[in-house]
Design a protein around this nucleic acid. Structure first.
Lengths: 163, 163
DNA sequence: CCTTGCCTTCGAGCGTGCTCAAAGGCCTAG
DNA sequence: CTAGGCCTTTGAGCACGCTCGAAGGCAAGG
């Protein structure tokens, strides 16, 4: 059930522009995975961030990355999976602070799972709120577009999307 | 037609938590308006931003605001309407830069309407993209919540079902 | 009169999240 | 041997959007 919902959400999310849904489902469910170790450039490309950013995340203590004989970073499966999670959370607006807290909990062991779950639940609510805000702004923008030229000033006057 | 769509969107947006839909519809339609002039504190409360922010927007050239005999700002109807627009655009992620450009166009006169429309269309697309991103992140987060405890690390890696 | 409180201007400071520069190492191709 | 290219570390710098502090004005209440 969870899986079906996940997929339908993914499809719904990307439906409009007929985008790479296969890719998306794969990325979401990422079951096979087991990627080969990567260089920083490869990992950056894979995660769609810059190498700078990956080093920054490491410095921030979000992920540990091994080194090869030349001292170069080696991104293994575990690192990549964690970074996939991290970048998704970042993309959805979770602050670095919270991510640092979260990974600290992960590193502290299994007994912190309830607290981690709380963090996720709260973040879920945050995302939902944000989507609602954006949906209202979208409606307002579309309304203004539809009625363009009708208004005197740059306003449409839609409601305050209060919490 | 545009109005119906607007309303149904607003309802859809707030439906989930049974929120103040009446308030929202009223505010959405808010055609009457004609608020009395406000002090900066009142305007700030009305717009849900700080007085500091309102002064900042004024300094940034986003809005002109009159003064009373004591030199205090007076937010009239036109100012409030513009600020409602501005704060909504900000809330939906439009950069200050773009807003400055937009109001410059507004002040430049009617012949800039096509360009203003372009800006709105582009912003609409930006909001839609963002909603899609957030929807995906939401799905991933909900999935992780649903399967919590199954994973070793902070990632969505699930046991190998199908495929 | 004087305190209280909200307002003014102007410039500076801050929090967030990168982003980059400098100085240098390793490796491979020519 | 050397040049190119990608990597390393460290610390600094930047863009954005506020947010605040200092110094002072005006007006009402005690």
């Amino acid at each position: 059930m969870a899986m079906d919902e996940l997929m339908s959400r993914a499809l719904a999310a990307l439906g409009e522009d007929g985008a790479p849904s296969v890719e998306v489902i794969h990325a979401l469910a990422d079951l096979d995975a087991s990627t080969e170790p990567m260089t920083i450039a490869e990992a950056a490309a894979h995660l769609d961030v810059s190498p700078h950013t990956l080093r920054y995340y490491e410095r921030a203590g979000l992920v540990e990355v091994g080194r090869d004989s030349a001292g170069h970073r080696v991104y293994d499966d575990a690192a990549i999976r964690r970074l996939v999670f991290l970048t998704r959370m970042r993309l959805s607006g979770m602050p670095m602070r919270d991510l640092q807290h979260y990974v600290a909990l992960v590193d502290a062991g299994k007994q912190t799972e309830p607290e981690r779950l709380d963090i996720l639940l709260e973040h879920r609510d945050t995302i939902r709120r944000r989507i609602r805000e954006l949906t209202l702004s979208l409606a307002a923008t579309e309304y203004k577009i539809a009625t363009y030229g009708g208004a005197a000033g740059p306003d449409v006057h839609v409601a305050d999307t209060r919490r």
